[in-house]
Amino acid sequence: MKSAIWVHFPCVTHTKVWNSYRWVSRSCSLALYLRSDQAGKNRFSGTHRGMANVGPMLGAMMEVSKGTFAITRAEHYMASGDWVAITVEFAGEANGIKLKQAGVDLIRIDDGKIVEVRLFSSDQQQEDAFWGQ
């Protein structure tokens, strides 16, 4: 089930990436101490802590993809305690590569705020090539 309540994200340029996180019964915002784990071996891989690091990373993703990177579909919202798993599809163009693939975003919510995001791609090698080093 999806609701029409959007996650509030303070920087409009990154809204395209985060618009797909809708919640059944509440609206969430990103915590200032957010932790984001990016899989793979590309320029964005690794653990990024705090909005001071995550926000610019999302901005750089939009720069590299010239604004084309987006979550194109989000469904199957599965909650277990503080965790929500969402099956997603994402797409974009960068480095001469057109990316379109499925994935899973695993999000932890604490006190109404998204505090942790873990991303899983169905083809990590393609995503690594897409983002480059």
Rank of each mutant, 00 (worst) to 15 (best):
E75I: 06
T15D: 14
L106M: 06
N19H: 13
K16H: 08
V12D: 11
G59P: 04
V64I: 15
K16V: 13
G50C: 11
V104K: 01
S121F: 05
Q126H: 11
K113I: 00
Q133C: 09
L106H: 04
V84Y: 01
F9S: 06
D82L: 07
M57L: 15
W23D: 00
I71D: 00
K41D: 14
W6P: 10
G96P: 06
K113V: 01
V54L: 03
M61K: 02
G67Q: 04
M57C: 10
G103W: 06
A52V: 11
N19G: 12
R108E: 09
D111Y: 06
E116R: 15
S3E: 05
N53L: 08
A94K: 03
D128C: 05
A85C: 14
W18H: 14
E93A: 08
H14N: 14
P10C: 11
K66T: 01
E93V: 07
F120Q: 09
K66L: 05
G50L: 10
S121Q: 06
Q124N: 04
S29G: 07
Q133K: 12
G55P: 00
Q124E: 11
T68A: 05
G112D: 06
F44D: 06
R118A: 13
A70S: 05
N95P: 07
C28Y: 12
F69E: 04
W18S: 14
C28S: 10
M51S: 02
V54F: 03
M78R: 14
K2F: 07
D82T: 09
L58S: 08
F120H: 08
W6D: 12
D105Q: 12
H8I: 14
D111M: 08
F69R: 02
V115S: 13
F44W: 13
W18A: 15
S3W: 03
K98P: 04
W23K: 02
A102G: 14
V17A: 07
F9Q: 12
C28P: 07
S45W: 00
Y33E: 15
G132H: 11
E89C: 03
N19W: 05
V12K: 10
A102K: 15
V54M: 01
M1N: 15
G103E: 04
T15G: 12
G59E: 09
V88W: 06
A70R: 07
A74T: 00
W23S: 01
S20M: 06
R35M: 14
S36L: 07
R118Y: 13
C28Q: 09
I97K: 09
G103K: 11
S45F: 02
W83C: 06
V64G: 00
K16L: 10
C28T: 07
A31S: 15
F44A: 10
G96W: 13
K100R: 11
T72I: 01
I5P: 00
M78D: 13
F120V: 08
E127F: 04
G67N: 07
E63M: 09
V115R: 11
A85R: 14
